[in-house]
Design a protein around this nucleic acid. Structure first.
Lengths: 210, 210
DNA sequence: GCACTTATTATACACTTGTATAATTTCAGA
DNA sequence: TCTGAAATTATACAAGTGTATAATAAGTGC
């Protein structure tokens, strides 16, 4: 038999790392963490298993990198809707609420990914650090937005109040995101969005509806 | 060597099944799903691995049974605080909020368990059915309580309104539960409880604070 | 006290896991 | 065109996985 090695193309470290991370996310999303084996990830990325250890010291490292990537992507997707400058902070807040509870942010795949990762947050220190970092990034961004909205309507708040508001509104968004992602067919179109807007509005004492 | 078999005591099927489920939950809570192997579960339950297949057709079946048990326990733990009859529905609502965001309901172990299971909800039909069932049970109970509170203050609401309120309040509780469970050290004592009560109060337009 | 059911243990198996190491191939620079 | 570094493949390994099957012990009813 002709023993022919697999022919391959040298890629830049960045591209390869990227491909491995994407392959990991794809597998966890569709089959859960237990499907994301070293061999499956390599196959998904069109590469042989050994290469993973060349780019990541351990499999855990790859998983961590994938987690951070996912959370960053989520945050981006949520706040991307604010890019096009909206007339007011209040309007931006409403847009943010809608973005949080509708696709692509609220999505079974995103939830599956998130759940796949969150379970390792408890025991893995590195994963917990990533979790804290991304969670606070998100909440702080929300807090800034809330602060701007209050200033806009001439009711500036102190930092302690803003913290409480941000925690509360973040909880609403998290909860609705969760429910919309887990049971996407149990809510009418726009229902979660409307509930989110009126709830956040009630909590802040602001009128968010147009 | 004396080849001595392990001596054992015959237990009733119910007790054994129960022990296996509890062992499974205990392992998943402390070490995540990947630690809940057939052999570890058996050891935790003080039994040999083969016995698992005698009570559960497959390991997946055991996991599913454990999930249902966990969710039921959570719901019980949440509503147990309402047993001792409180003066008013409004007071019961406030108690429920506090119970949802404090131990033992809000707890890293509970979150780890929940996350471990939620990921299988996407692809496993049986798991999704269990999830939907427990979710709606919880939300319906909340909806009843909210309805009673409105009647109490002389502002009865129709069913559509109550549905929206229940979804919103449930989201607040879910979100705060999530955050309190994932990052238990990031909030001051009673902080989440206070935020939950004022948020739910704001959403419903009711004063829940004593 | 004996037979019978079945709960329980013991053993075996085929397969998958993550990782370590050595052999190769690619590609850039001289 | 040749050389050297490193990207990539190939192979090996020890440990762990779920499951199937046979042997044994425990308790129940007679």
């Amino acid at each position: 038999m002709v023993d022919s090695r697999k022919s391959f193309k040298r890629e830049s470290p960045d591209q390869r790392q990227d491909a491995l991370i994407e392959a990991t996310l794809s597998l966890i999303a569709s089959g859960g963490p237990e499907v994301a084996t070293v061999r499956n990830i390599a196959m998904e990325a069109g590469v042989t298993p050994g290469l993973i250890r060349h780019y990541f010291l351990t499999k855990e490292d790859l998983i961590g990198a994938a987690y951070e990537r996912h959370m960053t992507t989520m945050r981006y997707a949520t706040y991307a809707t604010l890019e096009r400058d909206l007339p007011s902070a209040v309007a931006r807040l409403a847009t943010l609420v809608t973005a949080s509870v509708t696709p692509p942010v609220a999505d079974p795949r995103a939830l599956a990914l998130w759940a796949g990762f969150i379970q390792s947050v408890q025991r893995d220190t590195a994963m917990r650090a990533i979790h804290e970092k991304t969670y606070f990034q998100f909440r702080d961004q929300l807090q800034v937005l809330i602060g701007e909205a209050f200033i806009e309507v001439g009711q500036p708040k102190n930092k302690a109040d803003l913290r409480r508001f941000a925690i509360a509104c973040n909880a609403v968004l998290d909860g609705l995101w969760l429910e919309g992602s887990a049971l996407p067919n149990s809510f009418k179109a726009g229902e979660l969005s409307a509930i989110g807007i009126s709830s956040v509005g009630a909590i802040l004492g602001l009128k968010l509806e147009v």
